[in-house]
Design a protein around this nucleic acid. Structure first.
Length: 593
RNA sequence: GGAGCCGUAGCUCAAUCGGUUAGAGCGCUGCCCUGUCACGGCAGAGGUUGCGGGUUCGAGCCCCGUCGGCUCCGCCA
């Protein structure tokens, strides 16, 4: 028996008069007592099937029992729709299949939710994920993801890149996220770790002479989940030898252009603008600036250089900065009470000391808790520098440079949301942020940590600064690609010399012994003619999210976990019995519920 | 580890200030219906208002606790 001659999206008026067999799910039924219409759905579309009692009484009788989501195969004559009953909403709306025989392959129970309606209850969607994936939007997302990965593979293949699979059972990483551990039965008491990224393997592949590597790589991080974060996620991972940072950026611009063209039918313009990290932070308060709107941060330290306002005075004397941004036209949307809430938000959520503001009313009058401390000259200079007009609201940041950037960067985004600056925008503002700092001081750990990762190469001209211990000033050959304020990925040119790598580890507080223990394999590999190399990794899930226009990573992953890392469909993770643990030389210390 | 929002029928939601028997749409079941495509008509079933406690003459609504979901901060080299 043949299930189908055509898919449900295939038949057209030109097929009229032929016989066809379709199979799929009953999408809906319209039972008129006599004639019965069934919309039959498969992955390619929907076709109307008609059961006519006067022509095929037995089949029509049988069709009365059909219910939503029953799986059937049906044979019939392709006929043009009666004049006036064509359905322009359907690709197959010009024809219908007049059923001559019907086989019910499988009945369906009533579904826990309707496929054509909004479902807010996400537990339910995840519990019945296989039904959720039948919904058109979700099915479309799966296809979109496939188109992205296919475009990626084709692109890299054409560029001469080799897809190489790297181990899922690998080693714990001393820095970075918490690892998922897997007990090694064959080595009692030892553990594998699931990779947070294939970083070391892809560098070792360069030492191996692969020269051009990519992988659609699953990565694992045992950290708390978020709307755009899962325990396991997928990276487009790339590494190449004898390549410059600009060449990698060009390669990735070509990839993204290809993906947007093939997955979305959109042409994007390349090359993307480049912006140094310092400039991104200064102007936008973020290392992944959304450049679809202005609201730029402006420095006022010189305006208040002689300020007698205590707060500003002490900040400036302590080496801090005074900065502000102008939320143009926000005055009518921000009452005094709301401004108070914003200040509270800045304090509790952003950890700011406060959020001073000046609200310029429609009349031009200033409402502000701090303006009384300003001199006339300061007020005039401030108004001019900020281009302050009636209806504007200025927000101030006064603190260390980094803290002011962080606070005003967040305030900027919140203002953009309030003013709906990106609401109807279909702009695609790609951007390379370059010249990241190599190192950052971590007050919690009381040591210097790698901003990107410990294999990132310092800029050649900044190596003397590294050697002089001026760690904060050392820039890395590192770059992030950003789209509309979302970080799509990041990479760097790596260190390929073992001496420089050892010096880097040392700077990070990893002594010679620990280096040998944890990175000996890498340092040894570097001693056997490691080529200069570099690469990048792009977050595939996030990219597909942007293309699909969804806010949740769960919408672009077939079987995601919920907020607490639970798979509501299969109920993983599960406890295992003592015997299974004993085989692995493992004992649980978890308290029994 | 912390904060916010939410939890009412299978689903999506309503229920005025704390006040009669907790409603609607969709879905479901039965009957009717021969050109619909959001088919239509009639009838019907379906509720421990997440759970536990408290305040009150009276609680879906107020209070406390708890469980669950989502979002954010921390965390994510």
């Amino acid at each position: 028996m043949k299930y189908r001659s055509h898919h449900c999206g295939a038949l057209r008026p030109s097929d009229a008069g032929t016989e066809a067999t379709l199979c799929g799910w009953v999408d809906s039924r319209r039972d008129h007592g006599g004639v019965i219409f069934i919309d039959l759905r498969d992955r390619e579309g929907v076709t109307q099937v008609v059961f006519r009692p006067e022509e095929y009484p037995e089949v029509a009788e049988q069709s009365h029992g059909l219910r939503s989501e029953d799986v059937i195969t049906v044979t019939g004559k392709v006929a043009p729709r009666l004049a006036g009953t064509e359905n322009p909403k359907l690709a197959t709306g010009g024809i219908e299949l007049i059923a001559t025989s019907l086989t019910v392959l499988n009945k369906s129970d009533v579904l826990p939710f309707q496929l054509d309606a909004k479902v807010s209850n996400e537990d339910l969607r995840l519990e019945y994920r296989y039904l959720d994936l039948r919904r058109p939007q979700m099915a479309q997302n799966l296809r979109l993801r496939h188109r992205v990965t296919t475009a990626t593979r084709n692109y890299f293949d054409e560029q001469g890149y080799l897809e190489v699979e790297t181990p899922i059972l690998s080693n714990p990483t001393p820095e970075g996220a918490r690892d998922f551990l897997v007990p090694a039965r064959l080595t009692p008491g030892a553990f594998y770790a699931l990779p947070q990224a294939p970083q070391q393997y892809k560098q070792l592949l360069q030492v191996a002479g692969v020269e051009k590597y990519f992988q659609i790589a699953r990565c694992f991080r045992d950290e708390d989940l978020r709307a755009e974060r899962q325990l396991e996620f997928t990276q487009i991972d790339v590494e190449a030898s004898f390549i410059s940072d600009v060449e990698i950026q060009t390669l990735i611009e070509g990839l993204l252009a290809r993906i947007f063209r093939e997955a979305k039918g959109v042409e994007i313009s390349t090359p993307f603008p480049r912006m140094p990290y310092q400039e991104a932070m200064d102007r936008f308060g973020s290392d992944k600036p959304d450049t679809r709107f202005g609201l730029e941060i402006i420095d006022l330290s010189d305006v208040f250089a002689a300020s007698e306002f205590k707060v500003f005075r002490s900040v400036l004397d302590g080496g801090g900065v005074i900065r502000a941004l102008n939320a143009r036209g926000a005055a009518e949307k921000l009452s005094k009470e709301q401004l108070k809430k914003w200040e509270e938000w800045a304090k509790t959520e952003l950890g700011a000391k406060g959020l001073a503001y000046i609200k310029a009313n429609a009349t031009g009058e200033w409402e502000s808790p701090i303006v009384k401390f300003f001199s006339e000259a300061e007020k005039a200079a401030l108004a001019e520098r900020m281009d302050l007009a009636p209806g504007d609201v200025l927000f101030f940041g006064a603190d260390k440079w980094q803290a002011v950037c962080d606070t005003l960067g967040r305030v900027r985004l919140r203002c953009a949301e309030l003013l709906e600056l990106t609401k109807d925008s279909n702009a695609l503002n790609f951007l390379w942020v370059v010249d990241f700092p190599l190192l950052a001081f971590s007050p919690e750990e009381a040591k210097w940590v790698a901003v990107h990762h410990p294999f990132t190469r310092p800029k050649t001209e900044d190596v003397p600064l590294l050697e002089a211990g001026e760690f904060a000033k050392v820039r890395a050959v590192a770059y992030d690609v950003v789209l509309n304020g979302v970080e799509l990925g990041g990479g760097s040119i790596r260190i390929h010399e073992k001496e420089l790598q050892a010096r880097m580890f040392e700077t990070l507080g990893i002594g010679p012994e620990e280096q040998q223990e944890k990175f000996g394999h890498l340092l040894r590999a570097f001693s056997f003619g490691a080529p200069p190399h570099g690469g990048i990794a792009l977050g595939l899930d996030r990219l597909v999210m942007l293309l699909a226009g969804t806010e949740s990573i769960r919408d672009v992953i077939a079987f995601p976990k919920n907020n607490r890392g639970l798979d509501l469909l299969t109920h993983s993770p599960v406890t295992v019995d003592f015997k299974q643990l004993r085989e692995l030389y493992i004992q649980s210390t978890a308290k029994k519920p």
